[in-house]
Design a protein around this nucleic acid. Structure first.
Lengths: 207, 207, 207, 207
DNA sequence: TATGAATGAGCATTCATTCAT
DNA sequence: CATGAATGAATGCTCATTCAT
């Protein structure tokens, strides 16, 4: 049934079209600053059509975020496939982050928005948690392995991951200032440097 | 004119009362999830009274944030007064962060919210920027000094500050999970460790 | 042309299928609480298909009601055929009502709904009036005859019919409470009793 | 505090103004055919003002109905005070009905509308039931007393009340046709006649 | 100084209906 | 015949803000 296939393809395209329009509009004006009407205009569709594909505005937001999260981690895992060491794999995370934030600054902002809005956050977390957890687990495992092989210091793994995560997410903090790919990449490299070797000059213990 | 003084004192108390009610409500339901009505209820005041003290909802939010930022940096500077080394001063930042986020988790969330909401952010930044910049400059100077005295590696100072900032702000990322003062303090210490000495094992243990 | 016949049969079946699904859904959720979408689902048909058979939602409702009215009076007339007296014929009306309301409580509710919704009512009345009038005329004639033969008191016939009608329709008033066939039948008998003999104990006229 | 009194008076007036506008609009176009916007226009108020006084459209409807029910029964009870016999009291019910339906035909329609709309009905009944039950109980008691004193036949009291109720409500059935006070009054008298003495000519029981 | 009342502007969502396939 | 997709038009409801008192 090639006809069904074409229909399905078109359907997916429609969904993506809406997601893109929504993401762009959300990023420009924030979730609450964006009306479904406006998204529809940007997508050049009728407002009701959005509701044909997405049950609600929330659902639309969540769908976009899920997409972004998936994309982000998929990229990381793709890089991992050609990495030659655990260390390199860890470093890839920040580098992919830099690339991703430069390429899709909007996802990042949306994610933060979500984080900060309690009502959305509760709903979102319930729905996105499984995905996030699955993806995060792989990073956790990477760090754990690195610790077991004596590459990383034996700090509590989850806290280590969290701290590194904060650093990577921190890349997005000042997107408006230096969203150019180059600047972000350099900052990512610096992050790797500091996370791995520290900022301190001398050798002695500096607690 | 002791009467005028009392009046002024009462006025300030009123303003603080409103700020507190608003902060609490904002933190619970997000800025957009909070109506002025609700804030007024929580403050046990009439809705119109809020407008007597604050020009708009935005203004109220900004006032709260300004308060929080000022408070945060004041604490840091107070700690600095009794610090015995540049290094200790740097470490104090994360420790104060831990304390602050534990004590006022709401400020943090609100700040993130602001960051992520474009319309608010633009307005806020115009208004808060001077304060932030002034406060940040002192941190910058601290780091610069530390570099000049050979305590910190000579990475670009502003990026160094930014990275450290992301780490400290990262403390707030999982506030809901471990908002207890103790947990945050430990994480702050770990952050200092890693930021200064790195996560890498190389040769000697640097704990 | 047996093919055409089969087609016609299938067509009628389709129409009835839709009517049934619609009636059920209308009765459960009310006319305005029922979307064409929902009816289509319940009929296991595409939404557009409803429009192939019925010009509009209104039309669908009217078609159902027409069906119900026809059915109701047909039953009455069928009973009349075996009745042995005018009095028995009159009594049959309430009894059929009891039976009908027990068997199809939904028709009744829908009819009331229609009655109470001005816009629908105007349209419906224009369309259903002929049918109702024709059916009602036979009842009128029955009552008139009964009066002429000295069975019923010589009150204005149309008012007499109306009052009796209100009593019969009143059977449906509390459908949810005692929709069981038995309860309704008993109440119908009581209605006949009272309508014919009055509720008063003593013999004298009590005007 | 005469000021508070005046405020309260004005408040009540506002509420009544809205109720009146709503009742009129509901009756003309049905509940679902009436938008809050339209009611506001008719009340010469802003739409939001309606929501200042009534929590929702449902609530507004219910408030109106409650008002109507109360009014209806209050009138009956007022008449009872000057009645000279149980019989007269019973007869007053239909007469008040005629008066009421002629004076406020809209209440009646609205009540029917409610009855027929499942979602509304469920909610309304939960809220109105206590009032209705209280008012109905007095009628029940009246009938019971009449039976105990040998005025009415010993049919099951509640069914007797129900049947009489159906007759009275039946007055409203054809409001559009003869809503004039006179016509309704005559019909009410006929209803009393028939309910009490029956429609049958001869003396013997004709079951 | 404090506030109850009023409202304009806006927004998410629904739904009957159409039409190309 | 049947229907998935698309949409214009409505509508209930919220909320920041104003203003008379």
């Amino acid at each position: 049934m090639p006809i069904a296939e074409r229909k399905e393809r078109e359907r997916r395209a429609r969904i993506q079209l809406i997601r893109n329009a929504a993401l762009k509009t959300f990023a420009e004006n924030g979730y609450h600053g964006t009306s479904m009407e406006r998204i529809a205009e940007n997508a050049e569709l009728g407002k009701a059509t959005l509701y044909y594909y997405f049950k609600s505005k929330d659902e639309l937001l969540l769908s976009i975020l899920e997409d972004g999260i998936r994309e982000f981690f998929d990229r990381i895992e793709r890089e991992w496939e050609t990495s030659e060491s655990l260390l390199e794999q860890i470093q890839q995370i920040a580098l992919v982050g830099a690339h991703f934030f430069a390429a899709y600054p909007n996802y990042f902002k949306l994610y933060y928005y979500l984080t900060a809005h309690p009502a959305l956050n509760r709903k979102a977390m319930r729905q996105l948690q499984p995905l996030i957890q699955e993806k995060t687990r792989r990073v956790q495992e990477l760090f754990l392995q690195a610790q077991q092989r004596g590459v990383l210091k034996p700090y509590p793994t989850d806290q280590l991951v969290e701290i590194f995560g904060a650093l990577v997410m921190g890349l997005g903090q000042f997107l408006d200032r230096d969203a150019d790919a180059r600047g972000l990449r350099e900052k990512a490299q610096l992050i790797n440097q500091i996370f791995l070797n520290g900022a301190l000059m001398q050798k002695e213990d500096n607690r």
